[in-house]
Design a protein around this nucleic acid. Structure first.
Length: 319
DNA sequence: CGGGGAAACAATACGTCACA
DNA sequence: TGTGACGTATTGTTTCCCCG
């Protein structure tokens, strides 16, 4: 501690005073850590983060902000006041080319910068936010893949245990999110009318439906259960805990590997269900209800996947 | 609409523990 | 002592939602 201080002071006044400096310092009991100077970058970052914390942002968001902004500040070795629009532009483009990031990622970072610098501006630490002139990064819409009939069948067959098979069937016919499937309890399933109540995002409940095949596999799985856990899907080892998102993901991934279906993940079942429903002519409003989307245009993304049904509709209604 | 926030999803790595 | 099956942690990416 003392030596670091000595070094810094020596650097300031020149070598020949170093002995004197350390002599003086020895007379004091310096135990405190180095304090950040007022208005230093890290201090401003900290007060930004605590301001956001007071506003009630989630810890995850704050963590994301912190890591993103710290990375910026360590890369651009400048005082915040001196950071220009060009600095940020270069940073973003370097970031993208180095990490081969998508435009969505880059825009996320830009938004975090924007939030930070606007706050600095509002608090009068800087005159004008340099992010103001950087506009939203255009993001290209990529067509998402869905599972084909053959792939689904292969996945089904590769699920050897009753549990895994039931999971595959349930995902296929309900299209629920992973986060929803892990929260399901046995009580939420109504086998007699093949429906289930799931708790979606924003703690909104909705009803989903499954086919007869799924019902049979669920029954088969449940009949083999010997534990008292109320969760629908549990680990098949003691102490039979409720499965987590990560576990379901790895189960699906493993099945995909076994049946050589590439890039399978739980969400893909959801997309597949939605795309098919729309392809088969199910009204988008109903698909929206089924998936639990609040806004219809979220559902519409799926409708765009298959150009073929645009053609069919055209023939049907116009041609 | 677009901006901003939250949360889900993905990738990866690592830890634990039973069991052969 | 290696291995399979879960669990957990972390970081990065993508999706979803709300609101003005």
């Amino acid at each position: 501690m003392n030596t670091e201080l000595t070094n810094q002071l020596t650097e300031l006044v020149g070598d020949h005073f170093s002995d004197q400096i350390s002599e003086i310092l020895k007379k004091y009991d310096i135990t405190r850590k180095l304090l950040p100077s007022v208005n230093s970058n890290s201090k401003l970052l900290d007060s930004f983060l605590s301001a956001k914390k007071v506003e009630g942002k989630s810890v995850k968001t704050l963590k994301y902000y912190k890591s993103t902004l710290s990375k910026l500040l360590t890369t651009i070795k400048k005082t915040l006041k001196k950071i220009t629009t060009d600095d940020l532009r270069n940073y973003l483009s370097d970031f993208q080319s180095q990490k081969n990031s998508s435009n969505v990622t880059i825009d996320n970072i830009r938004r975090i910068f924007s939030s930070f610098f606007s706050w600095l501006e509002d608090e009068d630490f800087i005159v004008k936010s340099p992010v103001r002139r950087i506009h939203k990064v255009k993001t290209t819409k990529v067509v998402k893949e869905t599972l084909t009939d053959e792939e689904l069948e292969r996945l089904r067959e590769s699920a050897l245990s009753y549990r895994d098979r039931a999971i595959v069937e349930f995902l296929t016919s309900t299209g629920v999110r992973v986060g929803e499937i892990v929260n399901l309890n046995i009580d939420d399933i109504k086998l007699y009318d093949r429906s289930a109540i799931v708790l979606g995002k924003g703690s909104a409940e909705r009803e989903v439906y499954f086919d007869a095949r799924t019902k049979i596999h669920l029954q088969r799985y449940l009949s083999t259960r010997s534990d008292k856990n109320c969760a629908l899907f549990v680990a098949n080892k003691l102490p039979y805990n409720r499965l987590t998102i990560g576990t379901i993901e790895s189960i699906i991934k493993k099945l995909g590997k076994k049946s050589s279906v590439h890039h399978v993940h739980p969400h893909k079942f959801r997309r597949t269900l939605a795309t098919r429903a729309i392809d088969k002519g199910m009204p988008v409003e109903q698909v929206q209800k089924l998936l639990g989307h609040v806004r219809i245009d979220t559902t519409m993304h799926y409708a765009m996947v298959n150009q073929a049904n645009v053609k069919i509709s055209h023939r049907k209604y116009i041609g």
